[in-house]
């Protein structure tokens, strides 16, 4: 399935560390230009190692990484630096460094032997700053930034390095939801605008379904699941792969649901939105909601009224009390 927009392909790639069993074996993956790919999998499965291997920093155990149809092992470090850039999880311990200076580090592969920047370098730094919307931060000291801001600055630094492949290790870890969405959106826009290929590792499956073009789901003892999120949901493969005892991935919504243990059965009638949240509440409290049951609750909202066996309640808590008594 190699296409013209393909930039990296792996051939029977095994990753891992010397004198240890391989973390993942026989990976045949493809990264495409202009697309945001999300790498998912439990902790310790080898996501970081896979990213390091794709970046050429870590050598494959077996197999090959082909970058632009040439074995990555044949590139020099300096050549790779101009093609592939990284955003890692380690927080750089920098003091008295401004955002502009940090972004300018990305020009290392291009600057003179003593580190002098050319007008072109400054132009690329400027572009990276504009693309990541951090113009207002340019003179700030790096150690005064919030986590979300710092992540954008690190992405800008990677952009300034001006490669065709961007690899990010858990760029949304430790961020609040708003920042997570912002980073995902930024990366997606960057992939489209710059036609770079971007691969991120993440634990945010729901956001990845929502915001990325391609998923790689690594799991222990199973082939890596690869595909467009929507297609993987449609086929049921994704839900099957990621659902567990405690939670299931809803194939219709693409959202996780907690799997509650079965309890006494109840049926609910009434306005759909109200019925849905009453069902949610009752499931959480140990009941199972079915279409038809011995007991049926009726709900209306505005004003909130729930009737059960000729009793009327005006709040969810009272319903639970009555159910537990009876």
């Amino acid at each position: 399935m190699r296409t013209s927009s393909s930039i990296v392909t792996t051939e029977s790639l095994s990753i891992g560390y010397a004198h240890q069993p391989a973390l993942m074996e026989n990976l045949n993956l493809e990264v495409q230009r202009g697309k945001l790919t999300a790498l998912l999998g439990p902790n310790g499965i080898g996501k970081t190692t896979l990213l390091r291997t794709l970046s050429g920093i870590h050598a494959p155990m077996k197999g090959k990484v082909l970058f632009k149809n040439t074995d990555l092992a044949q590139y020099t470090r300096q050549q790779i630096a101009k093609e592939i850039s990284l955003v890692l999880t380690d927080k750089p311990a920098l003091w008295s460094t401004t955002v502009y200076e940090l972004v300018s580090f990305g020009r290392y592969p291009y600057s003179s032997w003593i580190g002098q920047l050319s007008p072109l370098d400054h132009q690329k730094i400027e572009e990276a700053i504009q693309l990541t919307h951090i113009d207002f931060l340019r003179h700030h000291a790096v150690d005064t930034l919030s986590d979300g801001q710092l992540q954008k600055v690190m992405i800008a630094r990677a952009l300034a390095q001006d490669g065709d492949l961007l690899l990010l290790d858990e760029p949304t870890a430790h961020l609040d939801l708003g920042n997570k969405i912002e980073i995902f959106r930024l990366l997606r826009t960057l992939a489209l605008k710059t036609q770079k290929a971007i691969v991120i590792s993440t634990h945010e499956l729901e956001l990845a379904i929502e915001m990325t073009d391609c998923l790689w789901v690594l799991s222990c003892g199973a082939d890596t699941l690869v595909g467009t999120p929507e297609e993987l949901l449609l086929s049921g493969a994704l839900s099957q792969r990621v659902s567990g005892k405690e939670y299931i991935l809803n194939e219709l919504s693409g959202k996780f649901e907690i799997a509650h243990p079965a309890g006494p059965e109840l049926a609910i009638e009434g306005n759909p939105k109200a019925a849905q949240w009453l069902a949610h509440f009752l499931r959480k409290n140990g009941f199972t909601i079915v279409p038809k049951a011995a007991q049926t609750l009726h709900i209306t909202d505005s004003p909130l009224q729930i009737s059960l066996n000729n009793h009327v309640f005006d709040c969810f808590d009272d319903v639970i009390q009555a159910l537990n008594k009876g």
Binding site: A81, F105, Q161
Partner: peptide, 16 residues
């Protein structure tokens, strides 16, 4: 200067 980001970053920028 590149090392100030740490060894992995430095390696990814082509620092020998």
């Amino acid at each position: 200067q590149a090392m100030s980001l740490g060894e992995t970053y430095a390696a990814s920028m082509g620092v020998p």
